[in-house]
Design a protein around this nucleic acid. Sequence first.
DNA 1: ATGTCGATTTGCT
DNA 2: GCAAATCGACATA
Length: 210
Amino acid sequence: MFIFRKLTVKVRMMKLPGTFYLSNDVCDVARSLLGKVLFTKVSGLITAGIIVETEAYSYREKACHAYSGRRTKRTETLFLEGSTAYVYLCYGRYYLFNVVTNEKEIAEAVLIRALEPWKSIDIMLERRKMTGNHYSITSGPGKLSIAMGIDESFNRQPLTGDVVWIEDRGILVPFTEIVETTRVGVDYAGKDAELPWRYYIKGNKWVSRQ
DNA sequence: ATGTCGATTTGCT
DNA sequence: GCAAATCGACATA
């Protein structure tokens, strides 16, 4: 009887609470998100993927859009409270999905770079205009946004809502299975490009590049 | 397998 | 004008 109650409570607590994202250690959040499951609900269709690759960004380093507190129409989202989605247009072509972390006014975020498809893979394939099942379906930040139906309307969405959220489904990623390396495409950041703030699950087939 | 290139909006000089 | 938290098409080997 008591055991059943506990299980029921656990099942209902799968969605990560807003407090998860309030951490003042963006790299810790980036590592913790590996193995968690990202969900979106678009036109009533729910798709989900296991997060297998992330990158951390902070106002304290040059690769971040909000470096040294720079505020523009685009970066304003980064100054919102942790647990907010930050989606921006990259190269005028792809939407990149991030989760804002830390408290309000402290601009930090985790870029979700790759997913392992987990639910409604058929819908993801359709959105990607792919026929056969293939590892490239969500193996990159631009690709996963297309597969998950993420566009500019996701910017500023609360991760505690029912449009986009992240759940803990009990998938454990031991830290010995986490690879820490440099971030992709941030050469413009000079010395900060060398920070080992990219994290991915060792050997996972959906990682954007090994 | 590896390299080059273009698409297309935002932001900085 | 130019570079950018990217991707896929196409070329060459």
